[in-house]
C-alpha cells in the first residue's frame, strides 16, 4: 500500500508534521517494505490554498492514504475527491506512526478536524 505522511524532515526518523498543507515534507512510503520517496513541500509559504495545492501534489503521487496530524476543510475536500483516505491524529516519529497505523491504531476521518488556516504560523506542536 502506498501512503503519504507529513514529516518535519526527509527521512523515517523525522517527526510527523502536524500540519498537512504547510508541512515541511511529504514522505511517500510503500508500507510493505518502507521504501520511500521524500517530496519537499513547495507550498509551505504559499499565501493561500496551501492545503489544496498539497492535496493535489500527493494525489499526483498515486497514494491511497494520507497520514497527518491535522487536516483542514479545503485539503480534506480535495483529498476526498481524489479518493484518498485521510488519517489524522498521527504524531511522534514517522516510522512509529506508520507501524501504529498498520497495527490499526488510527482510524480514517470522514471530517476535517481543524478549521481553515490552522497551519499558518504553526511549527511542531505547541
Amino acid at each position: 500500500m502506498k501512503i503519504a505522511i507529513t514529516a518535519t524532515g526527509a527521512n523515517l526518523e523525522a517527526s510527523v508534521d502536524p500540519r498537512f498543507g504547510r508541512c515541511a515534507c511529504f514522505l511517500v512510503v510503500e508500507t510493505d517494505d518502507l521504501s520511500f520517496e521524500a517530496v519537499e513541500n513547495p507550498n509551505v509559504a504559499l499565501g493561500g490554498g496551501a492545503g489544496i495545492q498539497s492535496a493535489q501534489l500527493v494525489a499526483s503521487k498515486g497514494v491511497t492514504h494520507v497520514l497527518t496530524g491535522n487536516c483542514g476543510p479545503n485539503a480534506h475536500q480535495t483529498l476526498s475527491a481524489a479518493g484518498i483516505v485521510i488519517v489524522v491524529g498521527c504524531s511522534g516519529v514517522v516510522r512509529d506512526a506508520i507501524e501504529q497505523y498498520k497495527a490499526g491504531q488510527f482510524a480514517a476521518t470522514g471530517e476535517p478536524n481543524v478549521a481553515s488556516h490552522f497551519g499558518i504560523g504553526r511549527r511542531g506542536g505547541r
Binding site: I52, Q53, A82
Partner: peptide, 23 residues
C-alpha cells in the same frame, strides 16, 4: 482550469473538479 488559476480556487483532481469560492 487548475493550471491557469493563480489562487487555488479551482482544481481538477481524480474524477472531480472542485471550486473554492472564497479563494
Amino acid at each position: 482550469c487548475g493550471d491557469i488559476c493563480q489562487y487555488s480556487a479551482i482544481v481538477s483532481v481524480g474524477d472531480a473538479v472542485l471550486v473554492f469560492g472564497e479563494l
